[in-house]
Amino acid sequence: MSRKLLSDILSALLVFLFIYTGISKLLDYHTFRRQLGQSPFITLYAPFIVWALPLGEIIIAGLLLYTRTRLMGFYLSFFLLSLFTFYLIAMLRLSYFIPCSCGGVLQHLSWNAHIVFNIVFVILSTIGVLLHIKQQSAHSAN
């Protein structure tokens, strides 16, 4: 499999994830807002996050669509997914009450399954970044 095709597949997977979860959160706005409001760590920022998170996901998906902006999209995916994974781990370890604020079918996953799911996508983002950097250096060498 060529690096280019692999990069395309990785970006398509991330685009699917971000568009699906972003739109699901916006469609379930009231539930998502209530769930964020119940979260012990981010209650204060809930009114901001309730819009910023789904819009951020859709923007990252938009960056992943185009070759020029794809590296930035992979970096932001890595950042967002890592942040969410740390948040989940912190919630599991430090909080007594754990509301699920996940989009769509992901709210049916157990917390541990959700962490594994996130880690898989963090790894995919990392591979995407590395592939893209290699591609760019190969282009500049030519």
Binding site: D8, V15, F16, L65, G103
Partner: peptide, 18 residues
């Protein structure tokens, strides 16, 4: 080709969410 694959994924995701 890149656009078509990623756009296809985006369309599928939006359709699935709705």
């Amino acid at each position: 080709k890149t656009l078509s694959l990623a756009f296809f994924a985006a369309l599928c995701a939006a359709g699935t969410a709705f």
